[in-house]
Each structure stands twice: as C-alpha cells, then as structure tokens.
C-alpha cells in the first residue's frame, strides 16, 4: 500500500514558501496602496493638525481587530514616542468594557460607538473609524453621528468593494487577506500621526514668527 507522506523537510519547505509569499504579498500591496493614497493621506494629516491646533480630541473606534487598533492609535497621540512631540487628546471608544458590553447587550447594539460619540465628543473633534467591511453597521453609524456633529471624519476600511462611506477621508484597502489589510491600516494611522506632528510643528513655528 502506498501512502503519500509529507516528510519533515518537505513540510519546512512549504512553510518557508508560505512566509516568502506572505512577505511578497505585503510588499506588493503596500507599494500599490501607498502610491494611491499618498496625496489623500497628506491632506488628511493637515486637516487633523488644524483640528488639533484648535483643541480637538480624536475619538477612535472599530470592532474586532479594529478595537485593538483603536487603542493603539489613541495611545500614540496621548503618549508620543518621539521626544518633543506634544501630547494630544485622543480616546478609544473600545476601552470601556462596561459601556461597550452594556450597549451590545441592549436593544440597539449598533449604537455602540454613536452613543459614546454623542456623550463624549464636541463639534470640531475628529472621528477615526476602522471598518472590516463597508457594511460595518456600528462604525458606519459612528461616522454618520460624527458627521452630524461637525467632526472631521476618517474611515479606514477593507473588505468588499469600497462604497461611498460617510467620511471626509477614506482609506480603503482592497485585499482579500484581512491580516494584510490590517497591517496596511496600521501603517496608515502611523503615518497620519507622523505627518500630523510635522504639520503641527510647522504651524507652531509659523505662528511663533508672527
């Protein structure tokens, strides 16, 4: 009787090929994506800097992996990694587990972020939402609420075809691997942070010279 068996060495080769393909997929996707969004990203950072300069708070939200991304994004503003960068106001709407689970278990779970935005935000603030799909009901409603409240609205979306999202700036990653999309979004919000601080420094110097 013949049995097809994968030897240990063959298994390692399969794994190595998987890693090689994974890295190649990320590099190709990153080159294409960042070339496409570079101008939008710079404009978004400039708009964020204007809002921060006027005292805005950034409110970040998203479900699943987007929830940890929201926390990651907000800590960067509150506690900057680079010396000399000023601390900026940011809140993740995924931190308060009592409020989040309370709303998710209540009659209107899709209100989870919108509710917190109504209670915590002020006109002129900034909303940044992660959407695992363009039909992510909770994040969509959060963005619409933010827009009604005259906030700057930013959407980091993936999954499905990009539909018109209720956001001033949309960064849609068109990739079938959600992990790759998440990595590109991580780099996107890192870059928004970096460019926002460059604009803030630039503006700080310009204002001081007046």
């Amino acid at each position: 009787m013949m049995m097809v068996m994968k030897s240990a060495a063959e298994a390692v080769d399969v794994d190595l090929a998987f890693l090689r393909d994974g890295v190649a997929a990320r590099c190709a996707a990153g080159d294409e994506y960042f070339a496409a969004i570079a101008q939008e990203l710079a404009g978004c950072a400039a708009a964020m800097a204007d809002r921060f300069f006027a005292g805005a708070t950034l409110l970040v939200f998203g479900s699943g992996a987007g929830a940890t991304d929201a926390q990651h994004n907000s800590v960067e503003y509150v506690h900057p990694v680079l010396p000399g960068c000023r601390a900026l106001a940011a809140l993740s709407l995924t931190n308060d587990v009592s409020t989040v689970t309370g709303i998710l278990g209540g009659p209107d779970p899709l209100d989870v972020y919108a509710h917190q935005l109504r209670a915590l935000s002020r006109p002129g603030d900034i909303a940044l939402a992660f959407l695992a799909s363009p039909h992510d009901g909770a994040s969509l409603r959060g963005l619409r609420t933010a827009r009604e409240r005259e906030m700057l609205t930013i959407a980091l979306s993936t999954g499905g075809t990009p539909s018109e999202l209720p956001a001033t700036h949309t960064f849609h990653v068109d990739h079938d691997d959600p992990l790759v999309a998440q990595e590109l979004h991580l780099a996107t919000y890192h870059m928004l942070w970096e460019l926002t601080h460059i604009v803030l420094n630039h503006r700080g110097i310009a204002e001081a010279r007046r």
């Binding site: 990153g30 080159d31 994506y33 070339a35 710079a42 404009g43 870059m191």
Partner: peptide, 26 residues
C-alpha cells in the same frame, strides 16, 4: 470654530512635500 474651514491652513506645497513620505516609509 475656525478649525472647520475646508482648506487646510498649510500651503499646498507643504501637502505635496508630505505626500512623498508615505511611499518612503512603506
């Protein structure tokens, strides 16, 4: 709410410079 103006307060040339950063960082 002066921050609600539609045009960013920095010059277009600054935006153009900034837009080179993402591909470099990536």
């Amino acid at each position: 709410y002066p921050m609600l103006r539609e045009q960013p307060s920095v010059d277009a040339s600054v935006i153009t410079q900034l837009s080179r950063a993402p591909l470099q960082k990536s």
